[in-house]
Nucleic acid binder design. Structure first.
Lengths: 206, 206
DNA sequence: GTCTATATCGGGATAGAC
DNA sequence: GTCTATCCCGATATAGAC
């Protein structure tokens, strides 16, 4: 999807976009250089001309995928906002970003579970320290007795992330279970964007 | 884990268990017949002697994995219980089962997202009709105004499943984010088994 | 920069001896 | 049933002409 753009677009870009699509769908192990070439409508040897190897190409793809999924969120988490407001906008923003890149979660999760080492360093260096203020803010609130059931921050955070990310990862199940087509799924996500921010606040804060 | 059993165990069983471990960790595409053979401590050609092909072996593995993860749950969902009780036990039972087979969720989700056709038929034939009564029960409750925010059944169900399954899939993220080792993760799950059943009821029913 | 041809290798699968 | 040797294909990667 996404193209049929007859506009001029460099071979390098065409390759990258094709690679992104294929890696996202099939994962590193399932991806075939030939399929990437076909989708980019170029000769297979061009892949190596521009990117040297499958590994290097993959590296580029997942770094950009992570960059696209994470930094915008992280900025939000570092702002000096009351927890309630931060929860609300975290859920809304995150859902909105993923909606635009709906195959990134399953891609990242797949690679993370299949080949952790390749990708873990990015998390450790880029994500952890930026999420820490948010975690601290929740821990603080919990100590002050403001969190439902006095849950520790880990539980609150995982509940948040679960409800935001999982629907995209579980899309195939969802579509079978509720006989949804792609349009139905999008409507389903829009509904989530609508109610989930307030819902999360309600289920988290006393 | 799980072995070092010096007891006699048939070659066929050793192969199956090794295959299960490798397929669960690496997925179909990432798995290597050689690695399975090594782990089972047998010769590679034995794999073909007993299971003909990688495809056939995989088929056996994922069918058993699904069988292990799903039927017990499904029975529960068909019982004639009040919704509140059903929610509570659904969450508790499901968490407990997955805790014993913690790598199954990411395995199933990976294959479902990577190669849907292979696995979708099972869901369609085995799962959907058995989950339907549960879905109907929730829809009914929603019509009667008993569900928080009057959420439709799809949203309720996905919220449930998300909170149950995602922590296992997201384990690598969790472990980085909260500097958890495996013991820490298990404690984290035990905590969920403890609070989540009631928590879910509270956030779902008025 | 783009193509064709080819090298190289890994991995699934089979043959056949024991 | 178990082993060794080998086949064969598919996939990454490179060489080299244009």
């Amino acid at each position: 999807m996404a193209d049929d753009k007859l506009e001029k677009e460099s071979t390098e870009e065409k390759i990258f976009e094709a690679a992104r699509d294929v890696f996202h769908q099939k994962g590193f192990d399932g991806a075939r250089m030939q399929e990437i070439a076909d989708r980019a409508n170029i000769n297979k040897s061009m892949l190596h001309y521009y990117y040297r190897s499958k590994d290097k190409l993959f590296e580029k793809v997942y770094q950009l995928s992570l960059m696209r999924a994470i930094p915008k969120i992280v900025i939000l988490l570092n702002k000096d906002l009351p927890l309630e407001e931060k929860l609300r906008s975290f859920v809304r923003e995150y859902l909105t970003i993923i909606k635009k890149n709906p195959d990134i979660p399953s891609f990242i999760i797949r690679e993370l579970n299949t080949n952790p080492s390749r990708i873990q360093e990015f998390f450790r260096s880029q994500v952890v320290k930026n999420v820490q203020p948010f975690i601290d803010q929740i821990s603080e609130a919990s100590r002050e007795g403001k969190i439902v059931d006095n849950l520790p921050a880990e539980q609150v955070v995982i509940n948040l992330i679960s409800m935001i990310i999982f629907p995209f990862i579980g899309k195939p199940i969802l579509q079978i279970l509720f006989e949804m087509d792609d349009a139905g799924f999008e409507a389903f996500i829009d509904q989530r964007i609508d109610y989930l921010p307030d819902y999360v606040v309600k289920m988290t804060l006393k």
